[in-house]
């Protein structure tokens, strides 16, 4: 990105951003540090350096516990469920939202306002208000504790979001682009596929990532609409971790699992960083 800030302003910005970075990074580092602590280090501050922060003797014990040890039968299926549920929910929601947003931004049809307002209203609903009715309904129709039973509520969470972001993107694409394609001999579908979709790609990526995070981070639905490893996702599964005995807290294992579930998020952001930035800033359309 191009900036025309003076050196002085830039230096000030750098200084000002340091506390912000510390503020956001410390909790993450703390989780990482905790996940590397053995059982004894968790209980005894003297075994850690920088106060109680970094273990003097880092160990991968906690990771072993969640992947192959006592918590593995809880964590591994949960990780698998998380990946499947979130990917499928994201895919469906982005594809549906793409068509919906395209129609909203390009076509004039009755009920257009209604769709947008409904989408907005749905996303205003407190999630917790939907859980109880869904729980009852899902039990009756047999969706309780199944993977589709989670995907559907996630669609409800992510679709409004996706529709709103994507229609903003589509609206930024000059309509002439599409008209030019039509005059050049394209059908509406060809114009969409060859001109609009490539131009909207940054927007689609941004939307997909936001949708994925929303589903990936959800706890409420997952903990209430599942009862077993069939479909329980990682955020919910973490709550079911137990320590070695009744009296030990599974802090280390939870921290390790938290680190593991953060990794895909970090990878996604790093991979698509430039796309997201391009998408968030401009829509990347230049006539």
């Amino acid at each position: 990105m191009q900036t025309n800030l003076s050196t002085k302003t830039r230096n000030w910005m750098a200084v000002a951003s340091i506390p912000v970075m510390i503020w956001t990074a410390i909790p993450l580092l703390w989780i990482l540090a905790t996940s590397l602590k053995g059982t004894d280090a968790l209980a005894d501050p003297t075994k850690n350096s920088f106060g109680n922060f970094w273990p003097k003797d880092p160990t991968l014990e906690n990771y072993r516990v969640i992947f192959t040890g006592g918590a593995s039968d809880l964590f591994n299926p949960a990780l698998r469920n998380s990946i499947i549920v979130c990917l499928v929910a994201t895919l469906i929601s982005v594809i549906l939202a793409m068509f919906c947003a395209y129609a909203i931004s390009r076509l004039d049809f009755p009920g257009k306002k209604l769709i947008l307002t409904t989408a907005l209203a749905v996303s205003f609903f407190p999630v917790i208000a939907m859980v109880t009715p869904l729980f009852n309904l899902w039990r009756q129709v047999g969706l309780f504790d199944t993977i589709p039973g989670l995907i559907i509520p996630y669609l409800a969470l992510t679709l409004p979001l996706s529709i709103w972001t994507l229609s903003a993107f589509f609206q930024q694409i000059p309509w002439e682009m599409e008209q030019a394609a039509q005059v050049d001999g394209a059908t509406s579908w060809q114009a969409f596929r060859k001109v609009i979709a490539p131009l909207a790609a940054p927007g689609v990526f941004t939307t997909a990532i936001i949708a994925f995070f929303t589903a990936w981070n959800d706890f409420v639905f997952s903990s209430n609409l599942t009862s077993s490893n069939n479909s329980r996702t990682v955020p919910a599964a973490l709550a079911f971790f137990t320590g070695a005995s009744q009296f030990t807290q599974p802090t280390g294992a939870i921290a390790a699992a938290a680190v593991i579930v953060t990794i895909p998020v970090v990878i996604l952001v790093l991979l698509f960083q430039r796309r997201i930035v391009a998408g968030l800033t401009s829509g990347a359309v230049k006539g």
């Binding site: 000059p174 002439e176 682009m177 008209q179 030019a180 039509q182 005059v183 490539p198 131009l199 006539g287």
Partner: peptide, 20 residues
């Protein structure tokens, strides 16, 4: 007829080039 079936070509005011 739809625009694509009229076999006309057009230059737009803002050119409407395909940026990608």
């Amino acid at each position: 007829l739809a625009p694509r079936d009229r076999n006309l070509s057009m230059v737009f005011q803002n050119y409407a080039l395909y940026p990608h």
